[in-house]
């Protein structure tokens, strides 16, 4: 180890910031019922729409178990034609696949249930479908280390309307547990390139990217969650505005379309 390296290490060690786990005494909030639900359309080529709802309870910040899941419930969705569907429970989730042949494709949806005597309802609208144009993985100047590649998703916005997006990414079948959102501000009707900045892929990896066009309220919901995740630097930390109605209920009911592309990075 030469002197330059030693000096570099000393200086970096002296100046480097440090992180550590600390214990903070927190007040206990009264438990809230959480609805995490969506109604999803796959585009005109697909003949069904899917509804999915997971109902859980909030918990103490330091609790290290999975959240309590509500199981024995009757959860219904109603489309804009007034047709009502009861969701089936399977593996901690209430879900239903609605065949489009049977009913008209529906944009506006309502969900309702009753939990512990609380009537819980919500409404949402599915925005217009937007497809992924292509996905690539390239070396970005401010991307991951050494030979890592940054995935980028290309898609074309619909002109003349405000559009909001959420993206998901998985590499080799392992999903990235992060929020990626954007909107078409300043790019109305144009092709948008969304780079996954803190994500690293390599040649030979199987890359799957999902583009969800979501409703505005859901976008605002996820935006606040992201701001609150921002290293504690948000000047206005707080709970996002929920579209769920009911006493002691939080969460979001999202209307979304999905376009998904998988490719192997070459």
């Amino acid at each position: 180890m030469n002197i330059k390296t030693i000096i570099y290490i000393i200086i970096v060690a002296a100046l480097a910031s440090c992180t550590k786990v600390v214990e903070i005494d927190l007040n206990e909030a009264s438990p809230q019922i959480v609805m995490d639900a969506y109604v999803q359309d796959y585009g005109e080529d697909w003949k069904f729409q899917k509804v999915n709802a997971k109902l859980t309870r909030s918990m103490s910040i330091y609790e290290d178990s999975a959240p309590e899941v509500f199981e024995n419930l009757e959860v219904y969705v109603t489309n804009e034609q007034g047709k009502r569907f009861k969701l089936d429970y399977n593996n901690q989730v209430f879900m239903y696949n609605i065949l489009i042949d049977d009913v008209d494709r529906s944009t506006n949806w309502t969900i309702e249930t009753n939990i512990e005597g609380n009537e819980i309802t919500s409404e949402t609208s599915i925005p217009n479908y937007i497809a992924i144009d292509s996905i690539v993985a390239v070396k970005l100047p401010f991307g991951p280390r050494v030979d890592g590649l940054s995935p980028i998703c290309f898609f074309t916005d619909i002109p003349g309307e405000a559009n909001y997006f959420r993206l998901r990414i998985s590499i080799n079948g392992i999903p990235m547990n992060s929020l990626f959102i954007t909107r078409d501000d300043g790019f109305d009707g144009q092709q948008i390139a969304y780079p996954f900045m803190n994500t690293e892929a390599f040649v030979g990896d199987t890359l799957t990217i999902s583009l969800l066009a979501i409703d505005e309220l859901s976008f605002e919901y996820y935006k606040v969650i992201m701001q609150n995740m921002g290293g504690g630097f948000s000047a206005a930390p707080g709970n996002p505005i929920t579209n769920i109605e009911g006493e002691g209920v939080i969460g979001v009911f999202t209307g979304q379309t999905i376009s998904e592309v998988t490719r192997i990075i070459e």
């Binding site: 903070i24 438990p31 809230q32 309870r57």
Partner: peptide, 27 residues
């Protein structure tokens, strides 16, 4: 400072839940 008082899960992600603004103190 504002710290969360609970957490909940959305799409598999833990989300902080707040009860008040600036109800805590930094060390």
């Amino acid at each position: 400072v504002t710290f969360p008082s609970a957490k909940y899960y959305i799409d598999g992600m833990a989300v902080n839940y707040f009860t008040e603004r600036n109800g805590y103190r930094m060390p």
